[in-house]
């Protein structure tokens, strides 16, 4: 009896949420029928593609070269371990990018003629690092700066690879931030300034909190790109997932390790993409709730 009572509220919740999803999925139609149609069309579509590939003349060769089960099982643990290096680069770079890019975006928005040189510098920075191919930035920093043999400056290729990614991605992300900052209506800043808040306080308490909320989806989009580009650090000799798979490919004369690496990358980028979609959908729901009230 007691248990039954406790189970009721969650049940009621799923009920109301379920009906809302149904309502948006098929306005005026049966939800179950839509699911059945979608399932059948998906099976037919992908079934045709598989048939096409499997019946291709070169399929046996491709199957042997890319989808060798024993090689997969052998190289997977090694590549997965190397993949931790990618995850490490990604996680560390992400933190620095979030902070540094916001700093650049704020510099670009400094008001008044006094700050012209700082604004110009921030603009040159974003132009430069969005303009140069990432691969070149990695080479220039990884081989150039370390060759200077400056005392106290790290020579680790992993360090310089991460620095290159931070510099390149901060340029992109700062533009995302800037778009967000500019999307906050000037009347918000006017209201804050009318209370006697300084330009900095206005940014910190009123403009940036609203801007960041708006740019979370495009920010995550850039981070999906960053996750993939961690493989470029291999060019400096860092043994991460891509380099490890190259090593395995040369050892076995088989491309299956590349498939291994691709699966590992997908395993983290797809959840990120779905998370982004979920955030966008949640934002939309919230705005609509606000309008209805």
């Amino acid at each position: 009896m007691d248990r039954k009572d406790r189970a009721r509220p969650p049940l009621a919740l799923t009920g109301s949420r379920g009906s809302r999803i149904l309502g948006t999925a098929s306005p005026g139609g049966s939800g179950r029928r839509a699911v059945v149609v979608a399932t059948i069309s998906t099976l037919v579509f992908f079934g045709l593609i598989v048939l096409l590939v499997v019946n291709a003349a070169g399929w046996p060769d491709v199957k042997h070269a890319f989808f060798d089960r024993s090689i997969f099982e052998e190289s997977f643990p090694e590549i997965a371990r190397a993949f931790l290096v990618n995850v490490k680069i990604f996680l560390i770079a992400e933190v620095f990018i979030l902070v540094f890019a916001l700093f650049i975006a704020v510099l670009r928005g400094l008001p008044g003629p006094v700050f012209f040189p700082i604004r110009a510098l921030a603009t040159v920075y974003t132009d430069l690092f969005r303009g140069i191919p990432t691969i070149l930035v990695i080479y220039i920093l990884g081989f150039g700066v370390t060759a200077l043999q400056l005392p106290g400056v790290p020579v680790s290729p992993l360090f310089w690879g991460a620095v290159a990614l931070v510099l390149v991605y901060s340029a992109y992300v700062s533009e995302v931030y800037r778009a967000g900052i500019e999307s906050v209506h000037p009347s918000q800043a006017a209201a804050a300034r009318s209370l006697g808040l300084t330009h900095g306080q206005t940014l910190r308490f009123v403009v940036i909190p609203q801007a960041v909320r708006r740019v979370i989806p495009p920010l995550l989009n850039d981070f999906i790109g960053l996750q993939k580009d961690t493989a470029l650090v291999a060019l400096l000799g860092v043994v991460e997932a891509f380099r490890q798979s190259q090593i395995d490919v040369s050892a076995t004369f088989n491309y299956t390790p590349y498939i291994c690496t691709a699966i590992l990358f997908i395993a983290i980028t797809i959840p990120m993409a779905r998370f982004t979609d979920w955030l966008i959908a949640r934002d939309k729901r919230r705005q609509q709730a606000g309008r209805m009230a």
Binding site: S187, Q188, A190, A191, A192, R193, S194, L195, G196, V206, P209, Q210, R213
Partner: peptide, 16 residues
């Protein structure tokens, strides 16, 4: 501005 209050025509409340 700290000594001058203003109520805007469109209120301009902070939505967040």
């Amino acid at each position: 501005r700290r000594g001058i209050g203003i109520v805007f025509q469109s209120f301009n409340l902070f939505p967040h």
